[in-house]
């Protein structure tokens, strides 16, 4: 396995000892096909055990290791060293409070996720003994893309609207709500509209599109949000402009 020398410039912050953040430069040797996370692990093991970051699966599915790499939100386990020249700048995920070093506090996202009711509210409840709800492959495909969200929050770090207006419900949470709205088994759209079709919901989105560009699993949140906008607009037109509220 061929190795190469990697230089990393990592943002350091420890609330116990620091009042501000600073960058620290490290140099380690890593396999050429390695990822930024491998470099961080090598640093922690051989140079500096005080460096802190989250990681687990090393296969881009657990969503733990999101960080800014050369200014771009990335999963560090999916940021290939071969794609970088020179010093790689590693910072904590933008738009979230930094607990320490590369560890950010996701509380706001977690709270928003809960608010959008991202669970099945059955259209026609039935007991388990009656078997599965039938759902054709086409009905599955309709919402499937939006099930793939790993909650890594890269889209929040990329979204300038969220950075400027933190009350914005944001791309991942709204996409998940939309996923259930599109599910043929679900009847909970009305319950979710109150949050996702509000000012803090989709109408805070100005379609920068950055969320979809950085999504590591191609959920395409921007698409979900625009679809919610259209559906909500149609609701409004039906309610206000059609005779009888469109009923």
């Amino acid at each position: 396995m061929k190795e190469r020398l990697v230089q990393l410039e990592v943002l350091r912050y420890n609330p116990d000892t620091d009042t501000t953040a600073h960058f620290q430069r490290y140099e380690v040797s890593c396999p050429e096909e390695g990822v930024v996370l491998d470099a961080l692990n090598k640093i922690k093991e051989t140079i500096d055990p005080t460096l802190n970051y989250r990681w687990s699966c090393h296969m881009a599915v657990c969503g733990s290791c999101g960080m800014m790499i050369n200014g771009e939100p990335k999963l560090s386990c999916h940021a290939f060293l071969r794609e970088y020249d020179g010093v790689i700048r590693v910072e904590p995920l933008a738009h979230f409070p930094v607990e320490r070093d590369l560890v950010t506090a996701p509380d706001d996202f977690i709270e928003k996720l809960k608010r959008v009711k991202p669970y099945l509210i059955p259209k026609a409840p039935k007991p388990i003994s009656e078997g599965e709800y039938l759902q054709t492959p086409a009905q599955l495909k309709k919402y499937h893309r939006f099930t793939l969200c790993i909650n890594c929050m890269l889209c929040y770090a990329a979204c300038p609207e969220y950075g400027l207006t933190p009350k914005f419900i944001g791309p991942a949470a709204i996409s998940l709500a939309h996923r259930y709205n599109l599910d043929s088994r679900d009847g909970g759209r009305d319950a979710r509209q109150e949050v996702i079709a509000s000012k803090e919901g989709v109408w805070e989105c100005t379609f920068v599109g950055a969320c979809s560009e950085v999504c590591p699993v191609h959920v395409d949140p921007a698409s979900a949000l625009q679809q919610v906008k259209i559906a909500s607009s149609i609701d409004w037109i039906k309610e206000h402009l059609l005779p009888g509220g469109g009923k």
């Binding site: 912050y13 609330p15 501000t20 953040a21 200014g71 771009e72 904590p92 933008a94 738009h95 409070p97 930094v98 607990e99 506090a105 300038p160 950075g163 400027l164 100005t206 920068v208 599109g209 950055a210 560009e213």
Partner: peptide, 22 residues
């Protein structure tokens, strides 16, 4: 004491070409 890294309200779009395109 979590560190809050503020977003510069008037110059954030210089941070990335995609924001300039927007």
């Amino acid at each position: 004491k979590p560190l809050i890294r503020e977003v510069p309200p008037t110059s954030w779009y210089f941070r990335h070409p995609r924001y300039l395109r927007y």
